[in-house]
Write a protein that binds this DNA or RNA. Structure first.
Lengths: 127, 127
DNA sequence: TCTTGACATAGAGTTTACTCTACATTGTAT
DNA sequence: ATACAATGTAGAGTAAACTCTATGTCAAGA
C-alpha cells in the first residue's frame, strides 16, 4: 500500500510537519508521485517505528540520521549498522540500570516521608 | 560546611551558570554572605543530588520547581510532596517497562542482522 | 596601592526538536 | 469550470534547558 503524507501522519501519529522535518534531516526519504507528492509505504511504517524506538531511548536525531544514511546505502553497511545497534544496546542497558537505581532511591525517600508523616500524626494525637 | 558557588560547582558537577539558572528557576535558594555571595551548604549537595535524580527521570524543571517550592514551605506540605513522589514513581515504573520493551525489540533486530550477515557470508563463500 | 581572580546581575545566544505561517500548486467533488 | 481541501516549499517561531557575554564589585596577595 501507498500512503499520502496525511494518511501516513495518522498511521504513525507523527504530525505532517514532523514528517517533513524528518525528511529534511534525512531520516526518511519517501518516493514522490507524478505531482511531486510524497508516497509512503508499509516498510516506512516499520522504519518510523524503529526511529521512534531509537528516539525514545535517547538517541539524538543526528545519530539516527547516520544510521538512516547507512541503511540507505544498502547491504554493504550491514555490519556497521549492527555495531551501532550493539553499542546502543549498551547505552540502553545502562539507562535501565540507572532508572532502577533512581527508583530505589525514590522509594527510600517515599519511605522516609511516610515515617516523617506518621511521626507528625503521633505528635498531633499526643497534643 | 559552607561553599562558594565555585566550590559548590565542583562538588555537584554543575556549571556555575547552571547553578545560577537553577536559582532563578527557584530550584535552590542559597543564603548570601555579607558581600552578597552565595553560601551553599551540605544539605544543598543532597538536594542537588535529588534534583538530578528527578531530572534524569524526565521531570521537567517546572515540575521540580513546584516540588522545591513546596519543600521551602516546610512540613505542612509533606503529604502533597509525597503524592508527587508517588505519582512520579508510577512514571518511572512505566519508563523502565518501556525501556525493557525497546531492549527486547532491539535484540530482535540485532539477531535479525546477525542472520542476514551470515547469509551474506554464505553467499560469498558459494560464489 | 594596585592588580587579579572569584563573584554579582542582566540579558543575549545556543542547541534540539519540533511546530507553524505564508504562499503556491494540484487533485477531486459539484 | 470552479471551489476547496490536501499537499508542496521556504523560512520563521517556539519551548526547554542551558551557556555565555558584558559589565561591575570586592577581598586578598604582591
Amino acid at each position: 500500500m501507498k500512503y499520502s503524507i496525511g494518511e501516513f501522519s495518522k498511521l504513525t501519529n507523527l504530525g505532517i510537519h514532523t514528517l517533513r522535518y524528518y525528511e529534511q534531516e534525512h531520516l526518511i526519504t519517501p518516493e514522490r508521485d507524478s505531482g511531486n507528492r510524497r508516497c509512503y509505504t508499509d516498510q516506512d511504517i516499520a522504519w518510523i517505528d524503529f526511529i521512534k524506538r531509537l528516539k525514545d531511548t535517547g538517541m539524538p536525531i543526528k545519530e539516527i540520521r547516520k544510521y538512516a544514511e547507512l541503511r540507505a546505502e544498502g547491504d554493504s553497511t550491514l555490519s556497521e549498522r549492527m555495531e551501532m545497534l550493539i553499542s546502543h544496546r549498551k547505552v540502553l542497558n545502562e539507562q535501565i540500570k540507572q532508572l532502577r537505581e533512581h527508583m530505589r532511591k525514590l522509594d527510600e525517600k517515599i519511605d522516609f516521608y511516610r515515617r516523617e508523616n506518621s511521626e507528625k500524626i503521633q505528635l498531633k494525637l499526643k497534643k
